[in-house]
Deep mutational scan, measured.
Amino acid sequence: MSIQHFRVALIPFFAAFCLPVFAHPETLVKVKDAEDQLGARVGYIELDLNSGKILESFRPEERFPMMSTFKVLLCGAVLSRVDAGQEQLGRRIHYSQNDLVEYSPVTEKHLTDGMTVRELCSAAITMSDNTAANLLLTTIGGPKELTAFLHNMGDHVTRLDRWEPELNEAIPNDERDTTMPAAMATTLRKLLTGELLTLASRQQLIDWMEADKVAGPLLRSALPAGWFIADKSGASERGSRGIIAALGPDGKPSRIVVIYTTGSQATMDERNRQIAEIGASLIKHW
């Protein structure tokens, strides 16, 4: 067993022997300050990975656009099909120029040879490739089937209704393509630590998230040396920005953090900075 597999395998073990964890309200002060700075709603939740206990939250049951954070859930659904023998990570999918949508930095380079399901999930999570996400959605039956998968997991909140890039419209009070911080955190925890996926698939999912290449300005920018993070960011219209992450010190994840914001007129750089500052406060008061 590799060191990485050993780390994931021990998560349920540590759950039975973990020391108590305590929240620090200073982080919530920073979350509220971020709302003021951005002139927008901010949703935040911090969940103990082992016990599932909510350590701190702000607007945990308000809806926010999922943006590209849905791609982790999508690849979780794909992996569940792999575990059930209904899909193969090595299966090659061919597509055409007509399938390409905006922001497809990986898939646009493989029009001649296609990409495997594994490569598409990697592109969707690590590079947030939109065409990769659409091709993967097709393999499971579309957005409604992803919503059904989540319902079967016990998540009756999170929903995907449209494809890339339309799902990023982020219209106020529109429940399409939205989640709540509490629902997303719970669902992510189930995918990473529960029995829904095999150990190999849980490890694959967290490996893809750990290799995320487009979330550098967010929580990763505040991460001390030696800390672990596996994450997925998202951005969409109407000043929306978000990130879902499993992180912790000593090279292993111990908490789930979900941050969403929407309705801001601030620049992308400012939205990134506010999320990074929330992360810095979280780490300082860990």
Rank of each mutant, 00 (worst) to 15 (best):
S240T: 06
A222H: 10
T112A: 14
H5D: 07
A9D: 05
M67T: 09
P65T: 03
G154W: 12
Q4T: 13
S80G: 11
G239R: 03
L196M: 12
I171V: 13
Q86W: 13
S254V: 10
E175L: 12
F149A: 06
D161N: 04
Q97G: 14
R7Q: 14
P172I: 10
L49G: 01
T179D: 00
L219I: 14
I256L: 08
G154V: 01
L218P: 02
N168K: 03
A16L: 15
T187S: 13
A183H: 11
L89R: 04
V72G: 06
F13P: 08
I3G: 04
G234S: 04
T262M: 08
K190S: 11
E164V: 00
E108R: 05
F70V: 06
F6W: 10
N134A: 01
T262D: 13
Q88A: 11
A148E: 15
D174Y: 02
L188A: 03
A183G: 04
R176V: 04
K252D: 05
Q4R: 12
D161S: 03
I54G: 01
I171G: 12
V42C: 05
K53D: 14
R241K: 06
T267K: 08
E145W: 06
Q88Y: 12
R255S: 01
S254A: 10
L150T: 05
E237M: 15
S236V: 15
R202D: 01
T261S: 11
V214H: 06
E237T: 15
A34V: 09
E166N: 12
P65H: 06
N173C: 13
L199D: 15
L135S: 04
H151Y: 05
H285Y: 14
P224H: 02
N134T: 01
R63A: 03
A84V: 14
G226S: 07
T178Y: 01
S104K: 00
T261Q: 06
G263V: 06
E270V: 14
Q203A: 12
L100V: 11
D174M: 03
P25T: 09
T187G: 04
L219H: 01
F13S: 12
L49R: 01
P172V: 08
W163C: 08
A183W: 07
L199G: 15
M153T: 09
G234V: 00
I259L: 11
R189L: 11
L218H: 02
A16T: 12
F58M: 05
A225S: 09
R271L: 14
D177G: 01
G52A: 04
G114D: 14
S96E: 15
A211H: 14
